[in-house]
Amino acid sequence: MSDVYGAISDDAIQRIINDTHVKAPFLFNYVAPSIRFVQDDAGRLVDTEELWVTCSPVEDSPLDGEVPRFTRMQPFSLPGIPVKLPYCIQIIDAALDFHPGNIIALPPELPSPLSEQNFSMSAMVQFGMACIPDKLSALQPIPNLAKHVWRLPVLPVTELVCFTLNVFAFGRVTVTPENIGAGIPFDRIGLAVGGIEIVDIEPRGLENVVECYLIAMLKSYVLPKLILSLEDQVVKSLGLTVTSKLTAGLPDNPAIEENELRIWLDVKVI
């Protein structure tokens, strides 16, 4: 058997997500800011300042200290548009459910109930894009203002055109033992996404490409980071310097079962 074992419940993870959403809103709100003009008392334009425009309002963190609400994204460009465009991506709600699924109701497009060792997740993601004024797109020079617009870093807007996607996915954890050299074993933790569904999105091609982006995000970041974090916390709680490795020979390690993410490690106390 293993030396060390750690498990965390999906309920706990859900509460952590919710708590973090409140305390660290910048992790859930990604914004390419717009700008607004600053006028002096006489109404003359004297400067610009960033304007963080979102679809849904974001509350300040209740924590003391400097906790931003947004993570900066870079505005994007479109051909023929002489100025970059602001946007926002907001994760309004996110949920994670480990087998046996009892938190998320999967849409009919995905198999239900969850298979053994599978997890499901859902997220409500809100996207906001800037609408480009007609005058700007037609490249009609506007006296005074137009001269300034050409030199602006991003399009000044005060609101975005918003839409919301409900995303559902399920999958399982994969572990690929590798050797990273010098005989040091290394377990590459990955994600096999069983399926993903974006509700009410058309056409099919758009759904496919958005799904492609989301799968890439899940595979490369979200779940592996969660597992590594659990591994790290198990080891850290020993209060010692240890080397650890996933215990080999177990049918599922990490395992997703009984509403928990479980991990078994062999450690060497140094």
Binding site: D3, Y5, A12, V234, L238, E260
Partner: peptide, 17 residues
């Protein structure tokens, strides 16, 4: 069920001890 469970076997416990 607790939010988090850690367990340690005898040999690791001994090493930590």
């Amino acid at each position: 069920m607790s939010d988090v469970t850690f367990s340690v076997n005898e040999s690791t416990f001994k090493a930590v001890f």
